[in-house]
Design a protein around this nucleic acid. Structure first.
Lengths: 145, 145
DNA sequence: TTGAATATGAAATTCATTCTCATGATATAG
DNA sequence: CTATATCATGAGAATGAATTTCATATTCAA
């Protein structure tokens, strides 16, 4: 986090209490947060922080490469730290639970495919949607709920 | 398209001139259209059609499974016919060009991964972002730009 | 043709995100 | 420490995509 502050300073930015609190809560929190969720968590510490500042902070961190923007097609963006290893996501369409996975074979196939099409790949988004073990037991019957 | 009308009728829906025109233009058009783009095309034929009806039509077709909703993170949704074979997308971050590809090995790895995590996969979204051959120099070896 | 139901277009609404702007905080020079 | 220039903030306004409302028009069956 000091590193981030240094990078911001190098760009002519200044530190701020609000931003420090937002970053701290964000990096300590679970993954895949929406701005709204993060704002609520941050306000527990400091009631005065507005969501505009949370948006600004996440955008800044995203530009600096410390945060990844996720979009699972819910109409809201989610954010996660990019300090952890690269991974893709599994999204349960029943309960909304998001799991992570890493599959190097998929990664390299993507590289291969991109090259075949003359693309220089810079990133990708892969989300697999389905029903998680808890929501849809392989047993007979349709577990509604 | 008759089949679609029949299915709508079976649900208690009625036919309509506007919807027929929208469907016709949509299925004859190129892929990956936004509602705005489609509305413009449709209005060439019938100036009176409003975008609300285009939204409604695409939502209906989506529910019936004839249309797939795409989201490349642009802040706008795009739509494509789901009558063509399944495929994923390559998006050029320079010119916006979207290409399609199919890679069965990626598909089966996704199945495998989902199962390992106890998920019953129903669909996935995979988009690879990068620079297409026209926008970027032909990537020699690993030279990243 | 009538009548009950669905569909439409325009405008209003919703909701996430961004922007504006007056004020507050921060860093640096003196 | 204080001045001052600049950046950051928070509240609310603005934006823009998508949805809904509502009065009217269209469809379809009898």
């Amino acid at each position: 986090m000091r590193r981030i502050d240094a990078e911001i300073a190098a760009e002519g930015g200044k530190r701020s209490r609000s931003r420090a609190q937002i970053m701290e809560v964000f990096f300590r929190s679970g993954r895949h947060l929406t701005v709204d969720e993060l704002t609520r968590k941050v306000r527990v510490r400091n009631r005065n922080i507005g969501s505009a500042t949370v948006y600004r902070t996440l955008k800044l961190l995203s530009r600096l490469g410390y945060v990844k923007e996720l979009d699972f097609g819910e109409g809201v963006k989610r954010y996660e730290s990019s300090l952890t290893a690269h991974h893709d996501h599994l999204v349960c369409t029943e309960c909304g639970k998001v799991s992570e996975f890493e599959e190097p074979r998929i990664e390299s196939l993507q590289e291969e495919v991109a090259r075949e099409h003359g693309f220089s790949p810079t990133m990708h988004r892969l989300a697999i949607y389905g029903v998680c073990g808890r929501c849809g037991p392989p047993a007979t019957g349709k577990g509604e709920e």
